[in-house]
Design a binder for these strands. Structure first.
Lengths: 349, 349
DNA sequence: CTGTTAGCGCATTCAC
DNA sequence: GTGAATGCGCTAACAG
């Protein structure tokens, strides 16, 4: 007669802290394992007294369910977050809110850093190996190819912050065309009439749409002296450099609309400290996002604010709805943005 | 006679995309399941030809190992990252590097947001439910109680960016006392002689040590006119407000040493735009970290740079060493920091 | 509502 | 070096 279980030796050196399992809790509580399982499963049907008996035994043994073992058959409670733009401060609060909301729903965040050298398809497949319940894509600068990678999965996906005219995958973004139009109005209303647009990463829906809205609104209002310059990535340096380039030309603009705030900050510094241009008198500046830095005294940047909190809540809601019911159709949620006038543009006449 | 496996109906609606498993790969390759398992396990012993045969079959079936199922018996390939300070831009590049390094080692990052309202102990236990292979604590402002929570686990833990005189858990940080001393030297060398220190979150080793080094060095060099003010959290607003408070007093300092860069930026703006003080002529300013913003033209902030990349590499190395050999003793790694002189302090005489 | 039982997908003893 | 069998911790039928 043998015991397969390890017998506790007199010398109780904790070789490897034994994980307490459902079986032990069941024994301690004098119930079945499924009772224990159900007790820890909020949506399972189990009587109050039984659940409490289980909880008491579990507490005394310091039992914690093993999420991996659970995930193998049912939900993993894992939500993947794919991210790229780790040098744009815009994304830190975003990450904060996403992780908070995910945790509020008793899930946790698997953060995948999609390096430039790694294939997106690969990244998506990778995260799937963890049986994630859902996937959030948080990156303005991931190529359209991403949508393809997502479609091939049967896991709910929400793409945050970019439009897509594909309606096969759920997308939450702000109205970037509107953002561009607002920027145009803001500059024209303030009396500028020769604006330039500094674009972000090419092929990114956000920057494309902002440009389209901006230009079309300018022309609607009869402004024809505008120019567009490639910016590069969403970063301080990109904004800085693009600004120097544009001011080397013969057509000096009297206002700058940057594809996002961090570029605008770089641009402002180039204007003030390198080109000796007065903001907002000589040149007006606008960005998009309303990052924390925008309202600093140093920048005091006029901008088009994205409704981040709403966008995140909508994303998470949509994601968990799809997790609950995978047959729900993909939806495209577009939220309005809002102009924020600060000191980098002249007061309207 | 019944089949427990679901029979493929003529109508092949993909109710739920069947996950390919080891069994199917084994059948396709004409080998045993354990062969498949070994093929995907780098450290298992298996012959070249067999492994390749398995890989070919796997590829044709588009098989991906299920990391959760794997993690239940052996390593989960998951590394937990505990974080708090989501409004300090300092942490975005940190997160970038950590996730990159973790992924380079074929693991992935479980990012846990330790909200102020949640218990640290709870957070640590939570992440353990995922059987993480290791845990990184990235937060200057987590209380000492954290160390206790970690000690009770048998999972390797590395605490990043704070000292601890506990030697029971591995800690990687820069020499914060030295940072304080460097700041003192930098200010005194530049000709300031009535400095103030703006502290960060109370009870945080980083800010305590910086203050200690700063003050002791000041006194060593015969400077006795210094003051200290509570700053609050590591944030722009905290630095801004603390600066206003200090300048309301009668003893106006001629130099400011902030516990970190983002506070220093807030402080600079309070000085320049609210108090009409000239930097660096009237007042010199120093921070710690060397965040991206510090080298912007707007702030051009003198600072004490932390060797982030090295600190992160050391953290990850130490963590994976402990994962490989859990019996390794905890180590305390302290790296040197480096003064970076920019425009917010006067040129030395 | 509760207990029994059979897997989930994989790693790992053992034999061979 | 390889294959067969057992079990990881838990959930999900299925009976009672």
């Amino acid at each position: 007669m043998t015991f397969s279980k390890p017998v506790s030796t007199v010398d109780s050196t904790p070789v490897k802290k034994r994980k307490v399992t459902v079986v032990e809790v069941a024994e301690a509580a004098g119930v079945s394992v499924s009772a224990v399982s159900r007790a820890f499963n909020p949506e399972a049907s189990i009587s109050r007294p039984l659940r409490e008996k289980v909880f008491k035994a579990a507490a005394s043994l310091n039992y914690k369910p093993n999420r991996l073992a659970r995930g193998i058959k049912s939900r993993s409670s894992l939500v993947g977050i794919l991210m790229t733009d780790f040098n744009n401060p815009f994304y830190l609060p975003i990450l904060n809110s996403f992780t908070t909301e995910i945790q509020r729903r008793n899930c946790h965040s698997l953060l995948i850093n999609v390096n430039s050298d790694m294939d997106i398809q690969e990244a998506v497949e990778l995260v799937m190996e963890y049986n994630v319940d859902g996937l959030i894509i948080t990156s303005a600068s991931l190529p359209e190819q991403l949508v393809e990678a997502c479609k091939s999965q049967d896991t709910p996906v929400v793409i945050f912050g970019r439009d897509s005219h594909e309606n096969s995958v759920t997308v939450v973004s702000c109205d970037n065309v509107l953002a561009g139009r607002m920027a145009a109005d803001m500059l024209l209303d303030a009396g500028y009439d020769r604006p330039a647009f500094v674009a972000g990463p090419i092929g990114t829906s956000a920057t494309v749409d902002r440009q389209r809205g901006f230009i079309s609104r300018l022309m609607e209002r009869g402004c024809n002296q505008w120019q567009v310059v490639e910016g590069g990535e969403f970063s301080y340096d990109a904004g800085y450099d693009a600004t120097l380039r544009i001011f080397k030309g013969t057509e000096r603009p009297d206002a700058m609309f940057y594809a996002d705030d961090i570029m605008a900050c770089g641009g402002m510094d180039a204007l003030r400290y390198e080109l000796n241009v007065k903001i907002p008198d000589d040149v007006g500046v606008i960005g998009v996002d309303d990052i924390r830095l925008a309202k600093s005294r140093s920048y005091d940047l006029s901008t088009i604010r994205q409704p981040n909190d709403q966008m995140i809540l909508s994303s998470i809601d949509a994601l968990f709805q799809h997790i609950a019911d995978p047959n729900l159709p993909a939806q495209s949620i577009t939220l309005p943005c809002e102009p924020v006038v600060r000191g980098s543009t002249k007061k309207g006449r």
